[in-house]
Design a protein around this nucleic acid. Structure first.
Lengths: 339, 339
DNA sequence: TTGAAAGCGCTAACAG
DNA sequence: CTGTTAGCGCTTTCAA
């Protein structure tokens, strides 16, 4: 389909400058052993011809590429964006460039194999290492370093950066219980994802520690989406004895709870206290009390870690835990109804 | 730094499978002229060895790469995200993969040369064509097709997809004026960006058409950021005779106006009508009346256009205009104060 | 300080 | 149906 690629190559530059390709290559790579006049001349030819080297050819030949890869599920997802902000920052401070691969729709099937596909693609050629976000796979076949941000599994075989989900969840509960709530609803995340499991454990244990028996009918499964959050909240709020507070396993579903409350004419926080998890943009915007697990920081830390690995420097730990912080905003009150 | 790359190559597979590399290549590329037993055998070896082909080597050899490149300013920017959603959708419907390059911080200097750098990088090797978002450059030195989404300049030398900024702005103004507003503030965008210029023109002409003399003190320069929007709005709202409505040149700055109003204890829309431009997530969330220039659609259209160009199919126009639509939400009222 | 030559991993003729 | 051969554009020895 596509006609001959007529890009100007290193050969063209060499011919035009009346030097050999190796000399041009030396100039390009800023080697010291080139006479400065030769260099200036070559440079001027490069400029005149508008030459720029082929990434493919370069990557193929040289071991070090100064390029990091990033594989993210859905690039338009608020969660991904938060993580990428941190990665971007770390990249900006480093000599590396970043190449992003997106697997597209987050709900697409075959995520794990997709991931392996992209990891291989980047790893075997273009990049010195790759960061993979919210990975579903437990291990990767790869020859270059890889660091995962918030992987689905507990203890993956590759190095990773994770949040403290259990601690985050208990901090939420202590806050809610301290406010006087005892009927607290929980809308969970996807059960195959470890962070979701840990958040539910934190929820349960905190109730337990406070001597409040868990009401199983108040604990609903979810999937981290706004829509499911909305549906579950509708269930919870339509009861005769609705909870006075709801803890949603992430901000996306908390957003759904918010919508549901609005639909039913309930107000947050007057009629319902609400807490989310992740501190994504929308949560800040909405004034949602939420756990900041510092996704951006996780991205930053992962990038730093990967760069160390690429440089063959030692890294302290295989699993790096980022502390969690409860961000109190105006979405919670003392419960109004007496119980 | 990095030790020898010990990835398994097509050679290893060939040796192990006791066939030639070309046979392996044929299997990989699903050519028909391979005996099915040979194919199965090769496939099994590929699987066993965990082979995956090198993107770099492949791109270098073959003309058609089935890969599109995307160069975006700041990947974490809501604007970019909207555009990428559309691109993602188009990619999903196509046989192409997407490789994203981010130039990092949007405020970084040397944007135009950066852009050229990335365009060359992708163009000369990895991709069949590239999409560039919000390009500052007026032309690119490139040998593969390029399509721009919402370029800074009016009439760039490359094909592009643009919004109808003038029409968008006048529709806002007709709405506001129809509501009864006559003291309308305007917070502009970056003056070197054509869309910002057109929005201001639309603002002015609409006032004019309604027989309302433009009050220059109500027309403030901006830069499309929330912070500047906030500062300008503070100026406007602290006046003795504040405007009854503000039209911000984009949603980011409208968000700033919102913040400013909050700080001053003014409510939107009770005390101040507010309109933005772009229909990003936050605007929807906030219930902001805004112009939908359908950024996502622009991304989609650009991708379609690029694919046609890559396939050497004819495209209708060099500049493709996406119509604009005013989205009325609850951020506007009739003016309360009589004037 | 420079050039010649080898080869990275792959695809695409061309023979057989 | 399969193997041989010739590069793609580049970096990197090795010699000069």
């Amino acid at each position: 389909m596509v006609s001959k690629n007529n890009a100007v190559t290193i050969q063209d530059v060499a011919r035009e400058a009346r030097v050999s390709v190796s000399t041009v290559s030396r100039v390009l790579n800023e080697k010291v052993d080139v006479a400065s006049e030769t260099r200036d001349h070559v440079l001027s030819v490069i400029d005149r011809l508008g030459y720029s080297s082929s990434l493919a050819a370069r990557s193929m030949r040289s071991l070090r590429k100064n390029m990091l890869g990033l594989v993210v599920p859905d690039i338009g997802f608020p969660y991904s964006i938060e993580v990428m902000k941190g990665i971007n920052r770390a990249i900006a401070e480093s000599p590396f460039d970043l190449l992003v691969f997106t697997t597209g729709d987050i709900k697409k099937t075959g995520t794990a194999s997709h991931e392996q596909h992209y990891v291989s693609l980047l790893n075997n050629s273009l990049t010195d290492g790759v960061i993979i976000v919210a990975s579903a796979a437990n291990n990767f076949q790869t020859n270059a370093p890889i660091v995962a941000v918030d992987p689905h599994h507990v203890d993956p075989e590759y190095p990773s950066v994770q949040g403290k989900n259990y601690a985050g969840a208990t901090s939420v509960m202590e806050y809610l219980i301290g406010l006087g709530h005892s009927r607290i609803g929980f809308i969970g995340g996807r059960p195959e994802i470890w962070s979701a499991v840990r958040r539910e454990q934190g929820f349960r244990d905190a109730l337990n520690a406070a001597g409040i028996p868990a009401d199983e009918t108040l604990i609903l499964p979810g999937d981290f989406t706004t829509e499911t959050g909305r549906v579950r909240a509708l269930d919870l709020l339509n009861r005769d004895d609705p909870p006075t507070a709801i803890f949603a396993a992430n901000d996306q579903s908390a957003l759904g709870v918010y919508q549901a409350a609005e639909e039913l004419g309930r107000r947050v926080p007057e009629d319902l206290s609400l807490v989310g998890y992740d501190n994504i943009y929308e949560a800040r915007f909405l004034g949602l009390t939420t756990v900041d697990q510092n996704l951006s920081e996780m991205g930053y830390a992962a990038t730093e870690m990967l760069i160390k690995l690429v440089n063959r420097e030692p890294v302290d730990v295989k699993t790096y835990k980022i502390p969690t912080r409860l961000i109190v905003r105006d979405s919670c009150r003392r419960p109004q109804r007496s119980e």
